[in-house]
């Protein structure tokens, strides 16, 4: 997704005079084109993420629209207080971009994983959260983020859609596949890992696949088509590369209770950390957490 992001930043750089980009010393063979396009508005803030976020807040106060980029945990966890105090308290339009959300950095290890990012940041009032599914989504998401007057977090991942699959137009929450075996709602690019095997099944033998890509700390807007699909005879599975606390499952459970929405069952598949204590690819960790498709459809745990 980084290549698509780079192009979206270049487009934004040309369209938005107040655009400014900060990176925590990341972008080798990925962001050189952004650096070239942005010129002096491309700042390598070095290995100093706390300073990078506060500098971004200062730039935003000065009228700029900063985007601050790093590997996901370094973008939100290291400078957590700077995001809270300097960005969110002041409702500044700083866009924080975490590359490689969830287990995306795989065998690089736990320090590089981001399993609680949107849950943590979703506790800040006014924070918008974006988890795109497809590379193509960025063309819609970047201008939308740029238009926001407040802070936003973007979790980038890996688009694994099968060759030939044409994503539906970007929406905050959208249906990716028809199906008749319940409903499977995922967050972001995890959905793309399910597309290949689900496409090999007939609609009668697969769940309807939905993906959520945008919500905020203040609102969760689910489309009417999704809500009407749920009924007392429908099983709903939520699947996300995130720990249960602060998860979509937690959020959506509250939403359902407040709106008297009662699917027949609601099951949550989520990140479980490191059950074996060993490390591997993103797929390895998804499997260990029961986030691979066969586990999600057959061995999900209940929402606590």
């Amino acid at each position: 997704m980084r290549a698509a992001a780079a192009q979206a930043w270049i487009d934004l750089c040309r369209a938005e005079p107040q655009f400014i980009f900060l990176t925590g010393d990341l972008g080798f063979r990925a962001l050189e084109s952004v650096r070239e396009a942005a010129g002096p508005r491309f700042i390598n803030a070095g290995v100093a993420e706390q300073n990078m976020i506060s500098v971004a807040a200062g730039l935003a106060h000065q009228g700029f629209k900063p985007w601050a980029y790093s590997i996901a945990p370094f973008a939100y966890a290291r400078p957590f207080e700077q995001i809270r105090n300097d960005v969110c308290f002041h409702r500044l339009p700083v866009k924080i971009v975490g590359n490689g959300g969830g287990y995306a950095y795989g065998v690089m290890g736990a320090t590089h994983h981001a399993l609680e990012d949107y849950g943590v940041l979703g506790t800040f009032p006014g924070m918008s959260l974006f988890v795109p599914c497809f590379d193509e989504d960025l063309k819609s998401i970047f201008p939308l983020m740029n238009s926001l007057s407040g802070p936003a977090y973007l979790r980038l991942g890996l688009d694994e859609k099968p060759s030939g699959y044409l994503p539906p137009a970007y929406q905050a929450c959208r249906k990716l596949l028809d199906g008749h075996q319940g409903v499977l709602l995922t967050v972001g690019p995890l959905a793309t890992s399910y597309l290949g095997p689900l496409l090999e099944r007939s609609p009668w033998k697969r769940p309807e696949l939905w993906a959520l890509s945008h919500w905020s700390s203040d609102s969760l807007d689910l489309p009417l088509e999704f809500l009407t699909r749920l009924s007392s005879t429908t099983d709903l599975i939520l699947s996300e590369e995130h720990v249960p606390t602060g998860s979509l499952a937690e959020r959506i459970s509250l939403f359902f209770m407040q709106n008297q929405i009662t699917p027949r069952s609601l099951k949550s598949a989520h990140a479980r950390g490191y059950p074996s204590g060993k490390y591997g690819s993103q797929s390895f960790h998804r499997k260990e957490s029961g986030l691979d498709l066969s586990s999600v459809l057959n061995e999900q745990g209940s929402v606590s």
């Binding site: 506060s54 807040a57 200062g58 700077q82």
Partner: peptide, 13 residues
């Protein structure tokens, strides 16, 4: 860091 961001913004402006 906040002051640094303000100062950098002014320099760019």
């Amino acid at each position: 860091s906040l002051a640094t961001g303000l100062a950098l913004g002014k320099k760019l402006q």
